[in-house]
Design a protein around this nucleic acid. Structure first.
Lengths: 202, 202
DNA sequence: ACTGGAAGTGGACAGTGACAACATAAGTGC
DNA sequence: GCACTTATGTTGTCACTGTCCACTTCCAGT
């Protein structure tokens, strides 16, 4: 048989797992179904991943990449004259991108934060990489532009992230999950207003 | 046998399920283990709950009650002269209570927001009940005291909830889950500052 | 005292993650 | 060219889960 060895099963498995995640969330990523879809027997995955959790972690990492892409795309579109308004605009856009991604790719988004037990292999937490890094750079811009007091810079990343993350969660599983889009947009605007005002004012 | 009929198995099952939730999160609530702990055979639960999801929903409701208690306890402790400072203090305390509960009872907290498929039986969403109601009343106080513009009242509930919910999530499963308590306290303070400033200022 | 239905039991079944033993393909040194 | 080693897939199995079904036990109302 020419197809005994798949070639690059590992990535194929991750892709299939990501599809499942997209469609059915973290619990939908079932090892045997992933194998089925890849046209390979169950247990084949164990040659590439220690266990289900490790495959899930790979999907999570993929999801983080997608999230970062979405953020960068929107953020980089904000440009033009005044560094102050640019920085403010970017802060808003990065928040909007986060929420938009979460609501349009709920499955991937959940998986990204469902990686449970182990911290990753080598890198414990490179703070300047990934979505958090994107946000951090924008906050730095805000400080440099004189729009945010420098002493607020420290926890600001967590504050911003918490706000949009919570917003997304509440609209995915929380009590406002059935709110009409119009109301959702209103809340989001107020959220972005509040954070911007809270971080920059006075 | 005197113990063939348990008496009030339903609540006993919910309690056992809650214990499991406390210890191991939503996925730790395993029907068979719940039955085992209650000293009853598997399947006994099916006389009281349609399926696992329904038992989980009951635990979620219990968790919501605990959360509301914790919030009320801290909020009601804020009292004294000026209605303005009282209202502001309560807003901070309700947020602090939310985060504290989430971090000290992560299992229950997760279950409270893991109830997936069905909206509840009778009440679709009584907005004035539960934790959301507690928060809502505080926001009303803020408006009445003249500390928050009335036109901001509408989405304010979602904004506050999102902020603390996201904060809790990030510290439970997110990238800052291993942050030292000191750093966490700093971020929380900044979060509360930001929301307060953002909602009240001009 | 009898009986009908509610509450609990025991036994199945399909589906899951994981492990161990086996089979096959691809290299690798000679 | 050719044996041998190693990475990669496969089959078979196990314990565990949620759920369905048929059966048993007990209480309540006549």
């Amino acid at each position: 048989m020419s197809t005994y060895h798949h070639g690059n099963l590992r990535t194929a498995l991750v892709v299939a797992a990501a599809d499942l995640a997209r469609a059915h969330g973290p619990d939908g990523v079932v090892l045997r179904e992933v194998a089925r879809r890849t046209g390979v027997s169950h247990n084949a995955a164990y040659r590439h991943f220690a266990d289900r959790e490790e495959l899930l972690a790979e999907v999570a990492s993929l999801a983080m990449d997608r999230l970062e892409e979405a953020m960068l795309q929107r953020v980089d579109a904000v440009t033009g004259g005044d560094p102050r308004t640019v920085a403010r605009g970017r802060l808003r856009e990065v928040g909007r991108a986060y929420v938009t991604f979460a609501l349009s790719e709920p499955g991937l988004f959940e998986v990204a934060f469902a990686a449970h037990k182990p911290q990753n292999e080598t890198a414990p937490m490179p703070p300047e990489a990934g979505p958090y890094g994107v946000l951090g750079r924008i906050l730095d811009e805000l400080v440099e532009a004189g729009e945010m007091p420098a002493e607020r810079r420290d926890g600001a990343g967590v504050v911003c992230w918490a706000a949009v993350h919570g917003f997304a969660m509440l609209h995915l599983h929380g009590p406002v999950r059935e709110a009409p889009p119009q109301e959702r947009e209103h809340s989001l605007r107020l959220l972005l207003d509040t954070v911007e005002r809270g971080l920059t004012r006075r």
